[in-house]
Design a protein around this nucleic acid. Structure first.
Lengths: 211, 211
DNA sequence: TTCAATATACCTGAAAACCATTAGAAAAAA
DNA sequence: TTTTTTCTAATGGTTTTCAGGTATATTGAA
């Protein structure tokens, strides 16, 4: 049975990758690369007038973040299936992309087969996440549920300032609150995070990207 | 004037990039991609018997680190010109690669022109570093010369332990020295690093990869 | 071998951080 | 609207850090 080919839009600022994708997909009659863009704005402009079936979207574009792009594209064209594409796998970004509506996610070390399979899956309304991505997702879910004890906004703010090396008094001045309050926050932070000194607190802050 | 084409070996575990490079280079009669490998060991095995002019070497291979690869390749075939290739630019890695003997460095968002130009330059015995890389190198040199005030081995060790969240007494026990000595080290560290509290000390330690 | 750098150790006082607990006001959630 | 959470603040005490200086053994390089 002969279908119309799936039309593809490539959005990636790496010429090597763009050419690679085109080459990898050129053998396959089931897909047709319509065109490509190297930044977010051109892509959005194109989508004002035209439409494709699947977008291969690099996460790191020079102008607009991948996470933002997903939202903007789907606001405009809700039916387009977006397949995220990145070199390394950052759980938080992947999570956000999924929250915003990507239908699949590929690492750039994916094989030609994976690529085609991912495209046809998302085009059929299914999801596609490679085994590596699935592992990351599982890990991040597991971590989220146990690790991070949900800091309040104020606590997060105070933690950031503590980790900046600021003293209790400085923080108090900066936030227009009493040093005693700052100390209370610090103590609550240490309790929540189950640490017993400032060092571990700062380590936590840096590791969890609070800084 | 018609030269023999420059023979190229591509080493990268991303099929998309490999295909992209091949496509980008296929137009140009001055270069000829001999073959490609997706890991370090296969590459080294190949180089036992064969030789090429220029190797396009991805920094992040699955088996051997890029830095190590440069050394291993040049140990075997000192005349080969190696052009480093990576998506993101990590100063320390780039520096190490250069120390080990790469003749140039490209980011994967390089254009086709840059790519060809880089290849021909390194083949002619020149160096090639894109403007972004040059900026990184300049920055890292500038930083190195002023920032890091050369900690002694002991100080580094103590710093690591402090940043691990260990108390003075614990550190003292662990190193079989007096807690007072640990405090002295801490004090000297703070003086050297020009910070006035433990928090900043830990931040320094983490940022400078002491941990 | 001498000298400089390093690692070790100690003292002291002031400042800051840490611990435990309580509690009212404000904001968010139910 | 009521309930819960969060933010604020205080008391009072203990521990740790910070900053000043001093001093000795060890090590490595000139």
């Amino acid at each position: 049975m002969q279908h119309k080919p799936i039309t593809i839009l490539i959005v990636d600022d790496h010429p090597m990758v763009v050419e690679g994708l085109k080459t990898l997909l050129s053998d396959n009659p089931a897909v047709a690369v319509r065109t490509h863009f190297t930044n977010g704005n051109d892509t959005l402009e194109f989508l004002e007038k035209e439409i494709v079936d699947v977008i291969l979207l690099d996460v790191n574009l020079p102008d607009i973040s991948g996470v933002e792009m997903v939202k903007l594209i789907l606001d405009k064209r809700a039916t387009i299936k977006i397949l995220g594409l990145s070199t390394y796998s950052e759980p938080s970004i992947i999570n956000q992309m999924i929250k915003n509506g990507v239908k699949g996610y590929l690492l750039k070390n994916a094989t030609s087969d994976e690529l085609v399979s991912a495209i046809s899956k998302v085009h059929n309304g299914e999801f596609y996440f490679g085994s590596e991505i699935q592992k990351i997702l599982a890990d991040s879910v597991a971590q989220e549920s146990k690790d991070v004890p949900k800091l309040t906004r104020r606590e997060t703010h105070v933690l950031r300032l503590i980790a900046d090396g600021k003293t209790t008094n400085t923080i108090a001045e900066e936030l227009f609150i009493s040093p005693l309050t700052v100390e209370t926050h610090r103590r609550n932070l240490m309790q929540k995070l189950e640490v017993s000194n400032a060092a571990s607190l700062i380590k936590f802050a840096i590791e969890k990207k609070f800084i």
